[in-house]
Design a protein around this nucleic acid. Sequence first.
DNA 1: GTAATCTAACTAACCGTTTAATTAGTTATA
DNA 2: TATAACTAATTAAACGGTTAGTTAGATTAC
Lengths: 225, 225
Amino acid sequence: MKSLIKSRLGSRGRPVESRAAILTAAVREFSQEGIAGARIDSIARAARVNKALVYYYFQDKEALYGAVLDHVFSGLTACISEALDKHLSPRNRILNYAGAHFDYIAGHPLYPRIVQSELMRAGGGGATQLERIGKQYFRRIFGQVAEVLRQGIASGDFRAVDEMHFITSMVAIITFYFNSAPVMRFMTGVDPTSNEEVAKRRAAVLDFIAAALFKSKRNLKGARS
Amino acid sequence: MKSLIKSRLGSRGRPVESRAAILTAAVREFSQEGIAGARIDSIARAARVNKALVYYYFQDKEALYGAVLDHVFSGLTACISEALDKHLSPRNRILNYAGAHFDYIAGHPLYPRIVQSELMRAGGGGATQLERIGKQYFRRIFGQVAEVLRQGIASGDFRAVDEMHFITSMVAIITFYFNSAPVMRFMTGVDPTSNEEVAKRRAAVLDFIAAALFKSKRNLKGARS
DNA sequence: GTAATCTAACTAACCGTTTAATTAGTTATA
DNA sequence: TATAACTAATTAAACGGTTAGTTAGATTAC
């Protein structure tokens, strides 16, 4: 009887899509506003759904945030893991990893802010989901990258860097650009998220890592994605 | 008549110290909770002052946050500027800058979280103080560091890096460790903010930068602070 | 006495969460 | 096969706690 748009009241509608819409909206909201700044009302509105439905599918705000974290990190680690699994020389595996990590973030500009939010939340000592995330997602990848570093160092390809700190620095270089994009926008005048600028940044990141890690500076071509 | 602790009601008390106490408490609160999570009540309580006094000295939450940003960034840039003004070789000036930046953050563990918060706020498109901060503090230092890079490249001491991207990467390496400290704490088991670990990180940062920038790898001693 | 400093109490809005109702499919039953 | 009973999806409305911001007045230095 009614139009398709209006007749959703009480209808069983599209449950799977409703849930997905809520999650997508939550990713955007948490990413833009942070956890304390995110508004359930706003998420519901963006998902074109009643606020109570958010609570129907997700226990509370914290649980919804947890679901968002899982969504973000599972995608990220899946992508990186795939890049790491190819068996290449240590050099190319490192560049491959860095490139994949960079590309994933570049393709999902909302994610780095969520990661930063969660990193920062842990500092306050309050209840955090970070421990779960770390165990579930980080540990494995961290171990894999560290192993590649060890191989490269043993074979004499790499400088004898501290694995822990080197990985930290790589992640920093890969990530930071996207968080600080707003500052650059008005300090340089150009849009740092344009394809062209992102490509430049990608080259700079791989160059930086290669220069800092590889012993012989020949053949610094950088891995293609 | 009353004890010193209790007799602050209505008294003219210590206005300068009251204001300073509010600012200090605000730095801590904004750093731990972020801007949306920060509570004026909590700040007032920590400063041992009535909430209305916060509004007496600072217009509103946003203005208080602005004062916090000024406090943080003026200290940071003063410290870095001093390190940059010494006239040394390009190599030592870069290492000097990086060391000073690192040391300042290490000595003020609450600051990096505030910086990150502000960086992230800008992404949402909402009203931001970042533009003011950038003009007032960043531009000058950015220009100085870029100039040193240009000198080093011209003299053949440095690789021909893109200044903009290289500075971004340096800041990333210097900063990131402190934001991600919580993750490391439980992934490694050791406290990353201990003097010993911070010193290790400092060495790793300077080594990373030197390796990525300097052409000849001789004399990589690193600048003392 | 008057201007600067400070407080207790208040309010208006907001926001996370709950409740109860409503509708659309599904299954059981006559 | 029609329909009654049941379940899942969804909403409108309200509740209760919290919080940014206000007001009116108290106290004291000058």
